[in-house]
Design a protein around this nucleic acid. Structure first.
Length: 426
RNA sequence: GGAAGAGUGGCAGAGCUGGUUGAAUGCACCGGUCUUGAAAACCGGCGUGCGUUAACGCGUACCGGGGGUUCGAAUCCCUCCUCUUCCGCCA
């Protein structure tokens, strides 16, 4: 959520940014509404504080009057205070209402895209930031897609998952399960080596955490909700990990905070259909290793580059054909200022699959969850938050087994053989 | 799940027979004096949000969360959450 102060000072810049996201001119007046609601809020508080001040002074006097035995005078004052209390009661109710309206409006405004974000409405307008090095892999006509490979080598049973739960909940088995576990190990170790503190967070969060990262109210229908306890299954480890420092003030010396966490991710994916959901392409439950950083505002874009380099390093080591996209305004997620997507080419499906999304949220998340740092002079400011997948498992699995299929079987990439314990699936 | 107790500032820990208590005291931390330097000692500072102000400052709210009683609540009442101990149950 944007800061009202920022909206006041940079309205023109925000309007330009929102236009890049495809906002129509008619929607922009929400910014003026926010400013006017905030003005209203301030003026109400000023009035209310004055009444409260009077009440406090009078109450103190009453105490002194009782002590000195002047009960008559004290009782007279009591009536005056009661009258003031009715006024403050009304003012407070109104303030609460205004504050709620203000919050509702603020929740509707997405983050302002960075200057680097290209114009465009759909994923077709995304900019190829780094193209595939070399030619697209050609596996010939015998190549089969991963869902057939999964069946051929008994790696994943989709139908069994349907029986146990439903579509989108596959059962990994044998070398399929081991390969996935090996990849997780590899990703976590790489992240640790890069200085990220490994966490094993809760996979279920409370409402406050879901709000902190903006999953509520923005994407309410996308999460599985345990209504009995009012908990949510996490759609990504970003949620529990980013909330670690919610409503905290971090010493500047303790920045940056670098965390990595493995977690299953649960997504309802309401509205998905077609080829997108075939095989491992889109699931309701999948595994992912996430990297998250909380950093000094001056450093966040430098850090974004470092995170890109980290993810790129993983794909290189796995020897997968990849490219990097810079998301256009229309495709940028609500909270992000700048996002890079990594796509891996899945050679049998002959399509690009998104395996990672690395974003800088600047202060959008930290403002909502009041995550600040104190600099050496004692001044408090919001931190910048960033996160990225490093990496999401299913599509890595899909492209890996597709690209590495040979007439002898599926060849395991060199770097993960020490984790799998085998070098071929046949 | 049942019973009892407890949740106060970075930490420890008073206050809890309602009335200058945003909150004693100690530790930690920051600045200063002293010292060749360090330590010790001494002096001073040391929470957060909001409002207001050019600024110093002033006002207001916050003692787990929410609500209530009262002229006035950290202090009384209700409720929820969390922790500790005991019992029960169980990976």
């Amino acid at each position: 959520m944007l800061q009202v102060q920022f909206i006041r000072e940079e309205k023109e810049r925000i309007i330009k940014g929102l236009a890049k996201r495809g906002w129509e001119a008619s929607k922009m007046n929400i910014l003026d509404e926010i400013i006017s609601l905030d003005d209203k809020r301030k003026s109400l508080q000023t009035q209310n504080d004055q009444f409260l001040s009077q009440i406090n002074a009078k109450s103190k006097e009453i105490g002194e009057l009782f002590k000195s035995g002047n009960a008559e005078k004290a009782n007279e004052f009591k009536g005056e205070v009661s009258a003031l209390k009715i006024k403050t009661g009304d003012l407070e109710a109104e303030m609460k209402k205004v504050q709620e309206m203000l919050n509702e409006s603020l929740y509707q405004v997405p983050n302002v895209p960075n200057e680097l974000v290209p114009n465009g409405q759909t994923d077709e307008d995304n900019e190829v930031f780094k193209a595939l090095e070399g030619a697209l892999p050609d596996l010939g006509t015998d190549a089969i897609p991963h869902w057939e490979l999964a069946q051929k080598y008994s790696l994943i049973d989709f139908a069994l998952g349907v029986k146990i739960t439903g579509a989108g909940f596959p059962v990994y088995m044998g070398k399929g399960a081991k390969l996935q576990r090996a990849l997780v190990q590899f990703f976590l170790n790489e992240a640790s080596d890069a200085g990220y503190l490994e966490l094993n967070p809760p996979f279920v969060v409370n409402e406050a955490s879901a709000r902190g990262t903006g999953n509520l109210p923005d994407k309410e229908g996308q999460m599985y909700h345990c209504t009995t306890d009012n908990f949510y299954l996490i759609p990504t480890a970003e949620v529990p990990v980013t909330n670690m420092h919610r409503a905290e003030i971090i010493a500047q010396a303790d920045l940056p905070k670098k965390y990595t966490a493995f977690s299953p991710c649960f997504r309802r994916e309401a509205g998905s259909y077609g080829a997108d959901v075939k095989g491992l392409n889109r699931l309701h439950q999948f595994e992912k290793v996430e990297i998250v950083q909380m950093v000094h505002p001056d450093k966040s874009y430098e850090v974004l580059d470092q995170m890109l380099a980290h993810v790129e390093g993983l794909l290189k080591k796995l020897e997968l054909p990849y490219r990097i996209l810079r998301l256009c305004g229309g495709d940028l997620s609500f909270a992000s200022a700048l996002t890079y997507d990594f796509e891996v080419y899945s050679a049998a499906q002959k399509r690009w699959l998104e395996v990672s999304s690395v974003s800088n949220f600047e202060t959008f998340q930290s403002n909502r969850m009041k995550m600040r740092f104190k600099d050496t002079e004692g001044k408090k400011s919001l931190v910048h938050t960033l996160n990225g997948s490093a990496l999401a498992l299913p599509r890595i699995m899909a492209s890996l087994i597709e690209n590495n299929q040979t007439s002898d079987g599926i060849v395991i990439p060199e770097v993960i053989r020490k984790y799998t314990g085998f070098d071929i699936i046949n």
